[in-house]
Design a protein around this nucleic acid. Sequence first.
DNA 1: CGGGTCTTTGATACTCTTCAACACCCGTGG
DNA 2: CCACGGGTGTTGAAGAGTATCAAAGACCCG
Lengths: 242, 242
Amino acid sequence: MEKAAAHAAPPGPALQAVPFMKVAAETDKVVLTRRQREQLMLIGTRLRLPPRTVIYREGAAADSVFAITEGAVKSYRELRSGKRSVCAFLFQRDLFGLAERGRYRNCTQAITRVTVYRLSLSQLTLLLKRDGDLQFQFLTKVTHELRESQRRAVLIHRRDAPGRLAMFIELMAERNDRATARTRRVPLPMSRTDMADYLGLSLETVSRAAGELVRRKLVKFETLHLAVIVDPAGLAALAAAV
Amino acid sequence: MEKAAAHAAPPGPALQAVPFMKVAAETDKVVLTRRQREQLMLIGTRLRLPPRTVIYREGAAADSVFAITEGAVKSYRELRSGKRSVCAFLFQRDLFGLAERGRYRNCTQAITRVTVYRLSLSQLTLLLKRDGDLQFQFLTKVTHELRESQRRAVLIHRRDAPGRLAMFIELMAERNDRATARTRRVPLPMSRTDMADYLGLSLETVSRAAGELVRRKLVKFETLHLAVIVDPAGLAALAAAV
DNA sequence: CGGGTCTTTGATACTCTTCAACACCCGTGG
DNA sequence: CCACGGGTGTTGAAGAGTATCAAAGACCCG
C-alpha cells in the first residue's frame, strides 16, 4: 500500500487519466515526469485544509486551478430551491477549478482533510503554452473528466434507486484503484446527503437503497463510510443492468 | 444572418468555447486563427454525411477526432436494456471523438445532414504538442464541454418533466447563438425520442411536457422541430426554478 | 455522558413509466 | 389524384417508484 503510493506520488501535483491512444506498456494511467511536477510546484502552493473547508464559491473570481494530492473534495451547485446538485467527487490526482470567463462555476468543499496544490492560473497558462507535453497531459486529464461526467449522466438514467447506488459504489471502487480489488472495501467519505445530491435522489431513498443492497447480500457496511462488497458479481450485474 | 456566418466560419474547422479568463474584448468565444485552421485542414478530411449516418460505434478503434462545421450530431450509448442514453447533442464548432485507450466510448450519429472535419488523431497529437496555442484552444474547448456536461447533470436533477424540457429548450436556444435572441425560434432537429433519451424521460412524457408548455403559453411549435418562445421570461423562470 | 448531527424507518401523495390505441406526416404506388 | 403503409408523435388509464413529511434511532465529538 505504502510502496505503491511512494512510487506513484512523489512530491508535487499529479494527474490521473486514461490516454487517448492505446499505449504499449500496461501503463494505463498518464503520469507526469519529475521535471513537470517540479515546474508545477514552482507556480503553486501546497495547502492542507480541514474537512468542510469551502475552497471557493460559485461566481468567485477565479485565479487558481487546484490539483488534489490527498483527500476528497466535492464540487456542487446551490440551486434556488435550496437543494444542491453535486457535480463530482474529486480525489487524489484530480484537477478542479477550471473557470469560465474568470469566474468559478461551482462551489467546492473539502469532504475529508485534503492536501491540494493551488496553481496560479495565469502562470499555469504560460507554462502550458510553453510545454506542449505538459499541456497534453492536462488535455488528456480534462477529457477524462468529461467522460466521467458523461458516465454519470448514464447513471442518472436509471430510475431505480438500488441500481443507481450499485453503480455509484462501483464508481467509487474504481477510483480507489486496486486497493478495493483486493480488500473489497470501498471508502465512501461523503455523507448520505452528498450521495443523494449526486445521484439525484432524496437522502431517504439512498438510505433505503443501501438497506436493500445489504438485504440482497451484495454489500455490507462496516461503518457508514466504509462499504464492503460481499458479492462482486452480483453487484456488478445490478450495476450493469441498465 | 449570412454576414455573421461568413465572418465567423471561414473554411476549415472551428471551435466554440468560453475562455478560462476574462478577456478584455467582448470576444466571448475562442476563435482559431486562420493559420491554425489551415494547419488543421492539412491533417484532416472534409466529409459531408447524410442524416442518420452512424459516424462511429462504441468500442470501435479510434483513429480520428471530428470537428463539426455544419449540422447536428448526437452522441449516445446503447444500454443492455435496449434503451439509449444520449450523452450530448453536438453542433457547429463542437468537437467529438475523444477516445479512451484507442477506443471510442460512445456512438455518434448524424441527426441532420452534417459537414465534419475528420482529423487524424496521431497527426493531431503531434500538431498540438508542437503548437501550444492551438492546443490551448483544444483544452479550453474540452473544458467547455465538461462544464456543459455538468450542467446537464444539474438539469437531470429536476424531477418534473415540464421543467426539464424548459431547460432543454433554453440550452438549445443558447447553442443557436443570437439567432434565437431575435427571432425567438429554436430549432430542435432531434426527434422526441432523442430528447427523451437525453432528458432521462420516456418519450410520452416529453410529449406531454411539450403540450404542457404550450398550454401554459410559454412556447409554441411551428413544426415539430421548430419551437417558438412565446413568453421568454416565463420560460426562463420555469427553467431556472431548480 | 450529553447534545447535536446524521441516518434510518414509516405512511401518504404525487409524478412518471408502461402498455395500448389512435392520430399524423410523408413517400410510394396504383 | 387518392389510397396505403411505416415511422413518429399524441393521448388515455393503470401501476410502480420515489419524494415528502414526520419521528425515532444511531453515531460522533466535546
